[in-house]
């Protein structure tokens, strides 16, 4: 009775109301930023007295915003490639390996996801001070790779677990070398998992704030670091414009991920 929506009676409306209110609570702040970014009030009056594109003009006119966005994109793409490559190898070991202690290794791979990011950030900051990697592209990539890798491993092991190794064996019996079998049979077989892992890895790097704050230098910063430093000075609508573009990109990538999932189920 409580698990049959149509037999809930009056409770049905109560639950629906809570759901709708919660959805509004989650959605309205995001729509609010989008609205602000087109509003003409510098003092963030809402609803705005008029509409304008000047905050976007200001955003694109400032080379530091554009530079930060390019840096973020560059780091995101490198992290994406490395995270999928290392994640694929690690997943092969976890799913197809025969060595002992695979469960321990899996748990080890996932620890960076469990620890508070601030601890990883401070620890890496100290290590990079010694190695001279703070404020470098390499430093950013390593830091983001540490937190993106667990997500790639979860996604790719999930795909590998549902891919029957017998298909790979069949290719080998038909004369393929083991590497040929892996590259031309298994990889295409788990491509949905690889694409999802790539999207997740990119998004994690692209959105990451805490590690980036510690890795950044005045000459090299990512988009979230630029937002962070600007936010601490004032709440200018330029941030709303930047945030709106970030939301737009997220929506596009989410749609891409959903299409991949749909393609897989068909």
């Amino acid at each position: 009775m409580l698990l049959d929506f149509n037999k809930l009676g009056a409770w049905k409306w109560g639950l629906t109301a809570i759901c709708v209110l919660m959805a509004l609570f989650l959605l309205l702040p995001i729509l609010f930023i989008v609205g602000l970014s087109f509003g003409s009030s510098r003092w963030l009056i809402f609803p705005p007295p008029g509409w304008t594109l000047k905050w976007y003009a200001e955003l694109f006119a400032d080379p530091r915003w554009l530079g930060a966005a390019l840096t973020s994109a560059k780091i995101g793409v490198i992290v994406m490639v490395l995270s999928v490559a290392l994640g694929l190898l690690a997943s092969l070991a976890l799913v197809r390996g025969t060595f002992r202690g695979r469960e321990v290794l899996r748990a080890f791979f996932l620890t960076p996801m469990v620890l508070p990011v601030v601890i990883v950030a401070v620890a890496l900051y100290a290590a990079f001070l010694r190695l001279g990697l703070n404020g470098t592209l390499v430093g950013f990539v390593i830091a983001h790779l540490i937190v993106a890798l667990p997500f790639a491993i979860i996604t790719i092991t999930g795909a590998l677990e549902t891919f029957d190794p017998a298909i790979e064996d069949a290719a080998i019996l038909c004369g393929a070398s083991p590497w040929e079998a892996r590259l031309r049979v298994t990889l295409p077989g788990i491509r949905h998992g690889l694409f999802s892992a790539a999207i997740f890895s990119f998004l994690i790097s692209w959105d990451e704030v805490v590690l980036a704050i510690f890795m950044a230098s005045p000459s090299l910063q990512t988009l979230p670091v630029k937002v962070w430093t600007t936010l601490r000075q004032d709440l200018t609508p330029v941030i709303a414009a930047a945030s709106t573009l970030l939301v737009a990109l997220t929506v596009l990538l989410m749609i891409a991920a959903a299409l991949i999932r749909k393609g897989k189920s068909e």
């Binding site: 989650l26 959605l27 702040p29 995001i30 609010f32 930023i33 998004l203 959105d207 704030v209 979230p224 937002v227 962070w228 936010l231 709440l235 941030i239 709303a240 945030s243 970030l246 939301v247 997220t250 929506v251 990538l253 989410m254």
Partner: peptide, 13 residues
């Protein structure tokens, strides 16, 4: 959507 929207954007809101 809310979960994947940039953390700083949500906090700014």
């Amino acid at each position: 959507l809310s979960m994947w929207t940039n953390l700083l954007a949500r906090t700014y809101a």
